[in-house]
């Protein structure tokens, strides 16, 4: 049975979150799903289609899925108020496709506006030659031996879909146009290639996310683990010659890990600049006030808010913080302001 399943791996759809995995290390399987922990590799069969009708492949393209398809994903939790909340638990009788990037777990809550999760039949947990479960953390980037000594512009926001990813991409574009080698990084969230590809399309010198640090999701991961992952990405950005990093922190300020990061001295120590994305003026005022409670003040507001001149005027009046449109962030003259403030100009000249 094990050999049959291993043979099936060759034709299986390996999802984005598994892109760093060395498939050649798979030497066995088990069905001890009760022991599965976040990041363990799971071979599953599509049972019935729900919200996700496609998965994201390691090759960077989406693939339609059909009942009976075999897919490889990682056990993980999910935090997505617009979609699902899920836990890193595998029920042998049936599990849920929590994210198209390749996250399997147990659905615990669903946004009323979307369908139920696509159902999966767990077939096997993937093991190495020693019989140990293969986990994403084994395939994380190696330690670099240097510190995370690179200016970082963080991008925070009020919630999912407030404009953080666009802001991260456009600021990366502006910095690249200004002549900087930029690392565009997704610090937290659940693995998916949408944001990753959007960053890469800007011509950023290096693009990475938390899956490169060995996590399929940062949701429900210990804060220390999340911070270690972020530092690992920053170390690699510095090691690869980047002048500056733009790092998106997923979801809203009240989300579990984001809130913990905002409250942690780590963020202020690493921060060379801060952009806050939000949808309207009241959200802007609330976000700026919440950040102030932690001793933080954004250098700029952006997001859906910036599309409305009236909302911009209200937000600027309420907060005293400039609102930047996506075209502003992509403007090298504007991006250079962030870089100079962060001290990246001297790194670039050196």
């Amino acid at each position: 049975m094990t050999q049959t399943l291993i043979a099936a791996l060759a034709d299986a759809k390996w999802t984005f979150s598994t892109r760093r995995v060395d498939c050649g290390l798979v030497a066995g399987t088990d069905t001890n799903f009760a022991a599965a922990r976040p990041g363990d590799l799971i071979l599953a069969q599509v049972d019935s289609l729900g919200q996700h009708k496609r998965v994201q492949l390691t090759t960077g393209r989406p693939s339609f899925i059909y009942p009976g398809d075999m897919i490889v994903l990682a056990c993980g939790a999910r935090y997505a108020p617009d979609q699902f909340e899920g836990l890193a638990e595998i029920d042998p009788a049936g599990a849920d496709l929590l994210a198209g990037g390749g996250c399997i777990g147990r659905l615990v809550a669903r946004n009323e506006r979307i369908k139920s999760a696509t159902r999966l039949l767990p077939m096997a947990r993937l093991l190495d030659a020693a019989g140990m479960p293969l986990n994403l953390d084994r395939f994380a980037l190696p330690a670099t031996g240097r510190g995370p000594d690179i200016p970082v512009i963080f991008v925070l926001g009020t919630a999912m879909n407030s404009g953080k990813t666009l802001a991260t991409a456009q600021l990366s574009l502006g910095l690249r146009r200004a002549g900087y080698k930029v690392a565009a990084l997704k610090g937290t969230g659940t693995g998916a290639f949408g944001d990753f590809n959007e960053y890469a399309d800007t011509g950023a010198h290096w693009v990475a996310d938390f899956t490169d640090a060995g996590m399929v999701t940062t949701y429900r991961e210990p804060l220390e683990r999340v911070k270690q992952g972020l530092d690992l990405l920053l170390c690699h950005a510095a090691d690869r010659g980047c002048d500056i990093a733009v790092m998106e922190v997923a979801d809203g300020l009240f989300q579990r890990e984001t809130g913990a990061l905002v409250a942690d001295p780590w963020l202020k120590q690493r921060m060379s600049g801060l952009v806050f994305a939000c949808g309207d003026a009241v959200a802007a005022a609330g976000g700026v006030a919440e950040l102030a409670r932690h001793g933080l003040r954004p250098d700029a507001l952006t997001g859906i808010l910036s599309c409305s001149p009236m909302a911009v005027a209200e937000a600027e009046a309420a907060t005293g913080v400039a609102v930047l449109r996506k075209s502003d962030l992509a403007d090298p003259a504007e991006a250079n302001v962030f870089a100079l403030r962060a001290g990246a100009g001297s790194r670039q000249a050196a």
Binding site: A178, G179, P332, A333, N336, A339, L340, G345, S346, Q348, A349
Partner: peptide
């Protein structure tokens, strides 16, 4: 130009 990009 130099006033906008003095680092260049």
């Amino acid at each position: 130009f130099a006033m906008l990009y003095p680092n260049r």
